[in-house]
Design a protein around this nucleic acid. Structure first.
Lengths: 245, 245
DNA sequence: CGTCGTCTTGACCAGAATCAACTCGAGTGG
DNA sequence: CCACTCGAGTTGATTCTGGTCAAGACGACG
């Protein structure tokens, strides 16, 4: 069992625990649902290879993608939803996943920290997405997403340069960013014409990363564990938010 | 120490653990920052009385509120942020909070389940907000938020009917919903003129709850622990999402 | 009484949605 | 082998939701 590159820095004992605790490793094909089987428990799903995304689908037909999962990411499935909204997770590309049973992941286990960190990380990304949607226009939003995916692709060991695979349709991107596919297309054109990034054929080529980051006012700190090396670093925050005094 | 109504159903032993573990109970005044002191650890903050919200503030001056905290809610502070975004939590009204030390909240403690549930709940709300912003127009979004706050006010024991205090400015509501204060105002007028809800003076009066829920296509399941009574209930999900086959 | 902060309203503008058509490549079947 | 379909991407024309700008109302407070 080859673990995702994300885990390369872990202590061998933890890597072994992770590998050993995996049950029900299985492959899924493009666009298959991953959350139909593991739903009856608090088991955690580990992405071993490929991409997936989680979404909320409304009865109206609208869909909001709430998370993208890359190799090494952990996924905490939710009950299938009720009323006019359905929760789900589905494979973007061909996908290899494993299940970590509830019991092996909770209090006092070797994996506790990993799982906890993943929860915190997932929440941080969700907050960043919320801020992205609420407070940036379509162009900046698109740029920000590309920056995030680029950084995460590097962290997942999927690339070392400015090119990576991103097997999402423009319609998917729209459902991530709260835009229509047509408008995603226009934003992509704008990025292309500005020599900032080329997106298409399931691939992203970043032509001018600095520029892209500026457009999306991207700051990667939310993708890294708190405070760099030290966990929970402190800094007195004199400035604070101007509106909260 | 009077615990929020949310905890009334807990076993007495857990209530005692909760009360006993609280350190540094303190009061804050309107609009004071709560995250400046507890930031140096993974301590958890419990809202004892009053409202608070967490936000991300951009260098540009824009702000996105990422969570509203009511009495009984738990809050997991994040480092103060860097680059062009600042994270923070501030008191909406006068606020009483307590701190639960990291060590008393982790693996094997009496509070483990409570804390875990709170994390899951916080994530569920965040996802609902994301979907709200991404896939509903301003009117529906506003209605949805009012429904959520109403349900949560009931769960927090702050009201038993269709009226409750909500000490947020229209500017705050805008920063929750990704709208301008002017447009929030228009949506409030529309709700008022449609005899659906009256919002103002720090108070919400829901005149027609059924209608309000319909406008916001509100479904409260995400505010309740998984599956109602049973934890992690299973239901085979034949329908699934139409676009993920 | 004047100032300040919040709410309110109207007029106007712009960013994104909508609608509709066309391109292009991959399959598919006659 | 070619016509056909189908799905995804691309583009333009038009509409409309929500933003921007600016002014006034109103209550709290010094």
């Amino acid at each position: 069992m080859q673990l995702p590159a994300r885990f390369n820095t872990l202590a061998p004992s933890v890597r072994e625990a992770l590998t050993g605790d995996l049950v029900e490793v299985r492959g899924l094909s493009r666009r298959a649902l991953v959350t139909d089987r593991s739903m009856l428990s608090n088991d955690v799903i580990l992405i071993l290879d490929g991409w997936a995304f989680s979404y909320i689908a409304f009865a109206s037909g609208a869909r909001q993608i709430t998370a993208i999962h890359l190799p090494g990411d952990l996924l905490f499935p939710r009950a299938a939803g009720s009323g006019d909204s359905e929760y789900g997770t589905c494979a973007v590309s061909n996908l290899l996943i494993g299940t970590l049973p509830d019991a092996l992941v909770g209090a006092g286990t070797a994996l506790e920290n990993i799982v906890q960190d993943a929860r915190v990380q997932n929440a941080a990304i969700l907050e960043a997405w919320l801020a992205n949607m609420g407070r940036r226009d379509a162009y900046a939003r698109t740029a920000h997403l590309l920056c995030e995916m680029h950084t995460r692709a590097i962290l997942a060991g999927l690339t070392a340069n400015a090119t990576f695979q991103m097997p999402l349709f423009q319609e998917d991107l729209g459902d991530i960013l709260g835009l229509t596919p047509v408008h995603i297309n226009r934003m992509m054109r704008r990025l292309r014409e500005g020599q900032v990034a080329k997106v298409g054929f399931g691939r992203v080529d970043i032509l001018n990363l600095e520029n892209l980051m500026a457009i999306g006012s991207f700051d990667d700190h939310y993708l890294h564990p708190a405070g760099g090396q030290e966990r929970g670093c402190c800094q007195t925050n004199g400035a604070a938010a101007s509106r909260c005094v």
